[in-house]
Design a protein around this nucleic acid. Sequence first.
DNA 1: CATCGTATAATTGTATCCAATTATACGATC
DNA 2: GATCGTATAATTGGATACAATTATACGATG
Lengths: 219, 219
Amino acid sequence: MNPPSLAATTTAAALAARLRQEIDQGRWQAGELLRQEQLASEFGVSRIPVREALAQLQSEGLLRIEHYRGARVSWPTPAEIDEIFDLRLLVESDLVARALPRHDERSCRELARLQDQLEDAQDRLGWIGGDIAFHEALYRPAERSRSLALYRQLRAPIDRFSVQQLGPEARKQGWAEEHRQLIAAATSGDAPAVLATLAAHLDATRMVVLAACADLGDR
Amino acid sequence: MNPPSLAATTTAAALAARLRQEIDQGRWQAGELLRQEQLASEFGVSRIPVREALAQLQSEGLLRIEHYRGARVSWPTPAEIDEIFDLRLLVESDLVARALPRHDERSCRELARLQDQLEDAQDRLGWIGGDIAFHEALYRPAERSRSLALYRQLRAPIDRFSVQQLGPEARKQGWAEEHRQLIAAATSGDAPAVLATLAAHLDATRMVVLAACADLGDR
DNA sequence: CATCGTATAATTGTATCCAATTATACGATC
DNA sequence: GATCGTATAATTGGATACAATTATACGATG
């Protein structure tokens, strides 16, 4: 008989979500310190849920916490980014290959709808969210929850580079084209095509992220 | 000038390590509740570091925390376990393939030494620790830190089943045999052999874990 | 002037206490 | 007797307060 309780989650989780967004949007640069007290007063909570949120973001690879020193936004090296994309290719190829035979007309329409929605997105955050939604819909028919979680986890620490680099309209066009090809290949059930397109798509994204990361220097 | 500070870590981290061990040893069954107050008084600390340790173990997939309900030992389904082993095969095949050309006489001696040590291990915990050390040494020359972390993360939630099932001396023998074959293949640089052996080794382990998990029933 | 050591401030880690929520026990009602 | 509603207890989530550690400022010393 309760009202559906909008905030059915803990404040630490809400904070983590908020901070995740802000990191993606570039509020803090790589290597920058996040102060517990500052965040606590900013959001009007105590440091306890702040600490739990920071710990959560560390486990997602967005932060690195040092004992008594504080939480810094992670600063992946180009080698790490390369490795992440290699892993994404492994995992996402497996996912799409398993999903392919289970895609039907309905799921392919859903893909097209998500792509339309993506191209209508206004801000960078809506953009990356749309891309995530598209890929998840592409992989979901595989019914591999664990792999899907792994896919999310691999994206999380590098998505902010895509978001921040997302100026050039050209890249956006190419991205849309690759997504359209993925939909076509999924619709026709052409496994080699979908795998090749996915690989090309990931490689293109890799270049964007590496470029964004190169500007940082190491620390 | 400080003494090397044995506990250079936080108490939450120490607690997490301890609880990880205890979960592997089967102190709590799958689905069982871990009470914060009980753990706090048992280890002589407050509930704050206990909560942080529990959150950490949740991010590792060992626990599942429900809002205001408590932390339960995770109870993976056979399907999830199957999926984890599929992912392990993907990641570990990639790792061993990259490591293989970089193994030399020294690293292979190290593998043999670790295997000797493993076979001398007394208790179940030493056993699983030895197996982890062996595999990490097998993959380390690849210099893929992110993949190695992923490998650890995939093992973490299922190792307890191997540990608890680890009665039969027979299985232990077969395991040792497979490890010896891996060393031989690594020494001779025989990529197809090492990949085939790894796949067989993982499949054998999968069966053990699935058997241990089957006794649980779902919850 | 550079470097080291010390005192102070700033920050994180933990303990204690209170609030919010859930689980349990008990009685009323059909 | 079973089921529902309510009161109580048990448990978790969060706020405040304190301890431990690290960073900074400042002066002494060469």
